[in-house]
Design a protein around this nucleic acid. Structure first.
Length: 282
DNA sequence: CGGCGCACCTGAGTGC
DNA sequence: TGCACTCAGGTGCGCC
């Protein structure tokens, strides 16, 4: 479910409930997630520790503890991380929970179990974090993402622009939905080879990425007041999507029916008239 | 090394 | 109502 804006909204929703709180106990279901972290490791590193910060890098949520230990949560495709008032009964697919010293609970619910939990103990958390995020590209909403960065990374490659934008080594946080939306706004065909795209076009792409993600976060922000007990479902639905999932519907610019094509195993939606493959894109 | 296909899972939706 | 089948927004691995 979550792309970067949903993860960021989750972070903002949790923040006021967890900072300064001590973790009293944890729960872990017996079912495997995409990791091999044991319940013992989780308990050993989390119980009794106080949450001092909650950060985000790419689509990972990073809980920093006063002991120096770090808990990393990735929501996968169906994961939700949310805060519950005391003594709420567990739901189906709750796989991890932290009870805080005010008896509120942070819960991780993930039907498809594509989510990830990582624990980095105090003595190695700095190194592990560096190693883990070392190959990740810049954050789309920070200064590291520039037109030049994308232009330089694209030289010598004929990768389709959609795959390129979804490649976390190039830039993090752009999933399938927003890749489709960005390319529509940029009037680029998803299969346009990246080495045919000029510097100015990359500058424009960066502006579009920022605008779309920021808008989605803002839309999600309006739902934060409903965040408690809401299963961590941020305001994803409020974002006006223009092409994603719109196969057969009229393009909002030219009324041509939106097409759907599978690229690198992922659904791609585009307007065949507004988003033409071309020799050069400047 | 780059790029692709696939595997990891459950649930929702569709067509018969 | 049920069954078979397809598809889903992420990521990392193995293989070419």
């Amino acid at each position: 479910m979550p792309e970067l804006p949903e993860v960021e909204v989750t972070r903002l929703g949790l923040l006021p409930h967890v900072i300064g709180r001590r973790i009293v106990d944890i729960y872990r279901s017996p079912l495997a997630l995409r990791d091999a972290v044991t319940e013992t490791d989780l308990r050993r590193n989390l119980r009794g520790a106080t949450i001092v910060a909650l950060d985000r890098r790419a689509k990972y949520l990073i809980f920093r503890l006063n002991t120096g230990a770090v808990l990393v949560v990735h929501l996968g495709m169906t994961g939700k991380l949310s805060i519950f008032e005391p003594h709420r009964s567990k739901a189906k697919h709750d796989h991890f929970a932290m009870r805080l010293d005010d008896d509120w609970e942070v819960r991780f619910n993930d039907a498809r179990r594509f989510g990830t939990l990582l624990i980095w103990p105090p003595e190695m958390s700095g190194e592990e974090e560096k190693r883990f995020f070392g190959s990740h590209g810049p954050e789309p909403l920070e200064s590291g993402l520039t037109g030049s960065h994308l232009y330089n990374a694209a030289q010598g490659k004929r990768t389709p622009v959609k795959n390129f934008l979804m490649d976390g080594r190039i830039v993090v946080g752009i999933g399938n939905i927003y890749a489709n939306e960005v390319l529509y706004e940029a009037r680029l065909h998803p299969a346009q080879p990246v080495n045919t795209i000029g510097r100015e076009k990359w500058e424009e792409i960066v502006k579009i990425i920022r605008a779309i993600l920021a808008k989605a976060i803002k839309a999600g922000g309006t739902t934060i007041s409903d965040f408690v007990n809401a299963g961590g479902k941020p305001g994803y639905f409020q974002v006006q999507l223009k092409v994603y999932g719109k196969k057969g519907e009229q393009c909002q610019t030219c009324a041509t029916p939106i097409e759907k094509k599978t690229m690198a195993g992922r659904a791609s939606f585009f307007c065949p008239r507004c988003q033409r493959l071309e020799e050069k894109k400047t």
